[in-house]
Design a protein around this nucleic acid. Structure first.
Lengths: 171, 171
DNA sequence: AATAGCATGTAAGAAGTTACATGATTTC
DNA sequence: GAAATCATGTAACTTCTTACATGCTATT
């Protein structure tokens, strides 16, 4: 369901797009909340077209298909956003790793936490940079979400590395 | 792989535990980074025992089995934490919904964003409360990660609701 | 002429969900 | 004695990943 909703949302936001374009969109902005590869996206789009949530608006060279949301698709998306109680479950391998890192000794965990903090700083800066050049409101809000999340992990990794270091120095 | 690592990590952290106990542990602390249900956990534990990452240390009433990590399991976990480059992909249905919410009109999106912000405030406070009563360092760092993440989403939802409101007032 | 990017697809297998199934123990 | 919690398991299904497969177009 989530993949279907994500695709509907991206199509509403960007207007008509191909499976390839939607795959790219996932890699960039939407990647902070959902993830999908082309091998999952192409069949899903076919299925969505089959039950009327999207339609082919153009067929180009080399089998290229441009899809757009139908009225039924818009209704489905709106209903989901307004009425559906989302699952509060998360799967994030990078965060799982951070979560478990304090199980290692200070000599190993502190440098790894600092490295992660630096990575999150870089990502936050990149997103901030992107935000300042975005014309579109919705895209800006979306990039800001990523920004807040990066800053949160950066702050946590730094705070935790500091705490582990202090503890190790005191012991 | 991630489920296996999560289970190894939780066992190292808490000491020997049953499938039931690990399922509970997922619902509480680990739920901020990974998710698994008992129907996935029980077979996974059997598989991990079969290849020597964990072992049964006690068999109790009604088929209860208590597992603990083996030395091989510890080595596997450490290697993964130190050497494995984690996938930077996220799947979070609640965030996907937030991400798409600005596609709705201000009358619909603003109240929904405010409601989410309030929910994140509640969760952040609960985690903060939990932190102040935790004796164990590792558990505290873990709860703090959840805390930072909740505050980030709270800040984003508030900021976005404000921006949408201002924009609507100006137009 | 080679490389990178555009563009789509499928098959096999792994991971995860839903639903069914069972039964003891503790708390109200 | 009813309800909640402890405790484990499996089967069918859906979702997601990995790997293979193809071929055009633009750039260097």
């Amino acid at each position: 369901m989530s993949l279907r909703i994500a695709l509907l949302g991206l199509l509403v936001e960007s207007g008509a797009a191909s499976g390839y374009g939607l795959t790219k969109h996932f890699e960039l902005s939407a990647g902070n909340v959902w993830h999908a590869k082309h091998s999952q996206i192409y069949p899903e789009l076919r299925k969505m077209e089959a039950d009327g949530a999207i339609e082919t608006v153009e067929e180009g060279a080399r089998g290229k298909r441009t899809y757009d949301v139908t009225e039924a698709g818009r209704v489905e998306l709106r209903r989901w956003l307004v009425e559906h109680e989302p699952e509060r479950t998360i799967r994030n391998e990078a965060s799982l790793r951070m979560f478990l890192l304090p199980l290692l000794g200070p000599e190993e965990s502190v440098p790894l936490l600092r490295a992660e903090a630096a990575m999150y700083t870089t990502r936050a800066k990149r997103l901030d940079e992107i935000c300042s050049h975005i014309g579109n409101d919705v895209s800006m809000y979306q990039a800001r979400m990523g920004y807040h999340n990066m800053r949160a992990m950066e702050a946590w990794a730094t705070e935790t590395a500091d705490a582990i270091e202090q503890k190790a120095a005191g012991a």
